[in-house]
Design a protein around this nucleic acid. Sequence first.
DNA 1: AACATCAGTGAACCGAAATTCATTTCTTTG
DNA 2: CAAAGAAATGAATTTCGGTTCACTGATGTT
Lengths: 223, 223
Amino acid sequence: MAYRQTPAVEARLHDNRSRILLAARTLVSEGGWAEAQVAAVAAAAGIATGTVYRYFPSKAELFAEVLSAVSQREVDVLTDIASSGGPALGRLHSAVATFVRRAMRNPRLAYALIAEPCDKEIDEARLTYRATVSEVIRSIIESGQAAKEVRPDVRPDVAATVIVGGFMEGLIGPLSPLSRQQHPDTDAYRREVAQLADQIAALACTSVAATAATLRQLNRRPA
Amino acid sequence: MAYRQTPAVEARLHDNRSRILLAARTLVSEGGWAEAQVAAVAAAAGIATGTVYRYFPSKAELFAEVLSAVSQREVDVLTDIASSGGPALGRLHSAVATFVRRAMRNPRLAYALIAEPCDKEIDEARLTYRATVSEVIRSIIESGQAAKEVRPDVRPDVAATVIVGGFMEGLIGPLSPLSRQQHPDTDAYRREVAQLADQIAALACTSVAATAATLRQLNRRPA
DNA sequence: AACATCAGTGAACCGAAATTCATTTCTTTG
DNA sequence: CAAAGAAATGAATTTCGGTTCACTGATGTT
């Protein structure tokens, strides 16, 4: 017996893996999928190209992991909101508005995750992501239906998909590279984002809300 | 002077061009973008690969033309509905439902046009398409606002984008290759499509409608 | 018919980026 | 320290499909 992995090495390997993931995420969030090349990732992580393949079987799996890690954070945030207390429509409003606001904090990354054309394999992970978000929204709608806040004729799965598609598409305009020449760190910009988030969330809520009364209640106390 | 194009040749050229476009469209609608290769198009059109380049400067431009031709038909249909008479919400409902129903008539093609990952260059044309559809929807919403059918606080551009994203995403589930194992030509299937179309259209209408009364009126006479 | 020009051909070319692998360098153990 | 195994390297290979172009065959003009 001549070699066994020591903790020190194990730690270094794990660290390398993290660095690769971090480098990959950074590249995507700076230059989109075009910059997301294996060689570039390796360079950014300070290792050789071939080394990437000791940690990930393929480019697609590497980036699928990046995508799912980032997505998981968003899904977690939404899940928290979904399972918080209060009226369902309030949670729906909050979920949508929060998603929009968070996306606008890192537009380049959000654009890549939501809309930018990319490899088929990576795109699969994206579909899974959307489906998961959709599930969370569906759960809110279902609880809303139980509480009579949501019309009974609404099919929760369809409505959830439509709402998710709606707010993601609503984001594409503001997110798309042309619009993002510069997104200044000003109050005016923040206000604009907040308004957009509110507008989109309001549309989502209205589309399923049972009565005008329920909505009025919501507007009195916007989440 | 030694050569000038005669009508016969002109006709043949034009015919070739059409055949290329038709072959390209057929390939996409059968196998999606994966099958949409220049060599395959040439083969399907019964000509040599290089000949394609006598009619189109690049693959991207060829398929952009395919996409825009197909899209134009849809936009025309929507425009007709938009400029027909009647209440704006009725037109909105009709526009959305019609789009969904038509898409489900050729799911593979619709999927490719709406959601399937594809080359950047082709994707640009797709964005233009979405933007155009969005414009039509926006015009309906604006006229609805003028007629007090649509809430005044709705921003027509945002709402239009959200609605378009919503119904397109609402289609992706039903359209995505897995779901389309077979779409039988049965009454049950047609009923299901009609219901989906109606559900999605209803969500779109509700999201912007001014009052429950307006909606009730709509439900009495579903477009 | 002879010439000029155009249309069609398809095998070869090319670029780009993922992936591989023979070699080198580092770690561990006896 | 030497042997054995693991990890890292990065230049070379592979792949893949779009694009080119030298050539052949058609078509029109004189």
